[in-house]
């Protein structure tokens, strides 16, 4: 499974990449919205971890820019701003799930991602 991680926080990207690789998945990191948008189109990932608040382009903006080019990728919105969104709001914006940071258990997050991709 190819996973794209879009977050301006290096430690968050690293955490998610290390957990994904631990489970044998391929992980690509994007440091911001713009790069995320570019990599999304280039790499066609199976799943994207998309941070909400980023300096250049926010997660929801990335989603709206992608539009139809989003492809089959599953999207998990992640945010350190608790209470900003819930999964309902996330779905309206074209994402599949919303997860607040920090994650209680990083492996459960990967489990969740695997389930979402495998369900299709």
């Amino acid at each position: 499974m190819k996973i794209l991680i879009v977050d301006d926080e290096a430690i968050v990207r690293r955490s998610l990449r290390r957990a994904a690789e631990h489970r044998g998945h391929e992980a690509i990191e994007a440091e911001g919205g713009q790069q995320g948008l570019q990599l999304w189109c280039q790499e066609s990932p199976d799943l994207v971890f998309l941070d909400v608040l980023m300096p250049d382009l926010s997660g929801p903006e990335v989603l709206s820019r992608l539009g139809e080019k989003k492809g089959p990728a599953k999207v998990i919105l992640i945010s350190a701003y608790a209470g900003d969104y819930d999964s309902g709001a996330a779905q309206q914006m074209g994402a599949d799930l919303f997860l607040p940071k920090p994650f209680a258990d990083i492996f459960k997050v990967i489990d969740l991602a695997e389930k979402m991709v495998n369900r299709v």
């Binding site: 926080e9 430690i11 968050v12 690293r14 955490s15 998610l16 290390r18 957990a19 350190a80 701003y81 608790a82 607040p100 940071k101 920090p102 994650f103 209680a104 990083i106």
Partner: peptide
């Protein structure tokens, strides 16, 4: 929350 995500994960 971001650094905490790192620490915890």
């Amino acid at each position: 929350n971001n650094p905490l995500t790192g620490i915890q994960s």
